[in-house]
Amino acid sequence: MNRKQSVYPLQPPRERGTGRAFAFALLMHVLLGLFLYHGIHWQNSTPAGAEAELWTDIPPTPTQPPPPPAPPVRVQPPPPVDQEQADIALQEKKRKEQEAAQRAAQLAEQQRQKALQEQQEQAAREQAARLAAQKAAAEKLKQQQAQAAKLREQQAQQQAQQQKQAQLKQQQLEAQQKAEADKAAQEKAAKAKALAQQQAKQKQQLEQERRARLAQLQGMAGQSESGNGLAKSGTGSGSGGTAASPGYADKVRRIVRPHIIWGGATEGLETVISVHCAPDGQLLSASVQKSSGNPQWDTAALNAVNASNPMPVDLNGKAPASFLITLRPAGG
């Protein structure tokens, strides 16, 4: 008994009639097996062929009697089973069932753990896929932003280049306009210089002609010119008043002529200026005695006389007290 407790320490208490029940169950299983065996063997037997009877005038023969039935099979009852061995078998069966249940539970737990691991792996793969998609989207957005920034930079460079080209064209246009203006100014200055040279040459010729005529008149008259003065072509000339020497008019003309500034019409203009001087030649007064009808030319002539202060002195060392100066523009 101690041996059994050491082998099976967790045996349940023994119930009455367990051995009988086990023997009866075993007997019923054996009978059920024999019944199934004979039933299957009977169903698998080959069926007999069909028979046909023919009736003739032959007198009938006596039939043979059927064979006697087979004696019934007697089932031997199972040998008696020891109660202790039955308990051991039952405990072994329960142990195996418990082991099978434990194995099934372990298998189920393993399957559950495997399914959980697969779910976790699937979730991890999905998370990794989402992170990869987010990273790809971020990279794509970054590339788009970089492309947009590059495009803006290119546009800014193009605008700057266009502005630079426009400024360069504007500078070239301004330089061209300035060059044209300088050229026009140079041409105008050259024309003005040529005109001034031509006017100076004409004045010089007129002065020579006037001197020749004056010398001729002085030779014919044998005396100095009267105080009314003689109008000379060109820049004009002056004649001294009373007691003026014959060369005094040339002195006045040489002083007044450079101060005449006139760029308008010349035909028909003649102005007579009345001059009053001190003995040392200082100009006391100058006024227009006879107008030309052109106020601008009258003003230019009067300005030329005022700019000629002081007037030259005569041979006696004194300037005439008053005299008239008749002025005409060059070419008038």
Score class of each variant (00 low, 15 high):
254 R>T: 15
132 A>Y: 06
139 E>F: 08
137 A>E: 11
255 I>A: 08
204 Q>P: 00
180 E>F: 11
270 E>H: 13
205 Q>A: 03
134 Q>G: 00
199 Q>M: 06
155 Q>W: 04
132 A>I: 04
148 A>I: 04
202 Q>C: 00
231 A>H: 07
136 A>F: 02
137 A>K: 07
246 P>R: 02
174 E>P: 00
170 Q>A: 15
207 E>L: 12
142 K>Y: 08
206 L>K: 03
244 A>E: 09
204 Q>T: 04
178 K>G: 06
166 A>P: 08
273 I>C: 02
211 R>G: 01
188 K>G: 06
247 G>Y: 03
261 I>C: 04
236 G>T: 09
208 Q>A: 13
245 S>Y: 00
275 V>R: 14
169 K>A: 12
179 A>L: 15
201 K>W: 04
254 R>M: 13
248 Y>C: 08
188 K>Y: 00
133 A>W: 01
185 A>Q: 10
206 L>R: 10
175 A>Y: 05
171 Q>C: 01
171 Q>N: 04
203 K>H: 14
231 A>R: 13
249 A>C: 02
135 K>V: 07
179 A>T: 13
227 G>Y: 15
204 Q>G: 05
219 G>D: 09
240 G>A: 07
143 Q>G: 10
271 T>I: 13
208 Q>L: 12
209 E>G: 01
136 A>Y: 00
163 Q>S: 08
192 A>D: 09
140 K>R: 14
200 A>S: 07
233 S>G: 05
170 Q>G: 14
197 Q>M: 08
257 R>N: 14
254 R>E: 15
245 S>D: 03
188 K>C: 00
202 Q>R: 11
144 Q>I: 13
261 I>K: 15
178 K>I: 07
204 Q>H: 07
190 A>Y: 08
185 A>I: 03
190 A>I: 07
182 D>V: 12
162 Q>N: 04
229 G>E: 06
160 A>P: 02
183 K>G: 11
268 G>T: 04
155 Q>R: 14
149 A>H: 13
144 Q>P: 03
241 G>C: 07
212 A>R: 10
263 G>V: 06
144 Q>H: 12
182 D>L: 14
176 Q>Y: 08
153 E>R: 12
167 Q>S: 08
234 G>N: 03
233 S>Y: 05
237 S>Y: 02
239 S>V: 09
237 S>H: 03
262 W>K: 10
196 A>Q: 03
265 A>P: 15
258 P>Y: 09
246 P>F: 01
264 G>F: 01
136 A>D: 07
155 Q>L: 13
192 A>C: 01
142 K>T: 12
200 A>H: 09
164 K>T: 11
188 K>E: 00
257 R>G: 10
145 Q>C: 00
175 A>G: 11
195 L>Q: 14
137 A>Q: 12
260 I>C: 10
188 K>L: 07
197 Q>K: 12
216 Q>G: 05
256 V>C: 05
235 T>Y: 14
211 R>Q: 04
173 L>N: 09
175 A>Q: 15
185 A>V: 05
189 A>S: 11
272 V>E: 12
247 G>S: 05
240 G>M: 05
207 E>H: 06
270 E>K: 15
220 M>N: 06
216 Q>R: 02
195 L>H: 13
255 I>E: 03
204 Q>E: 10
260 I>W: 11
145 Q>R: 15
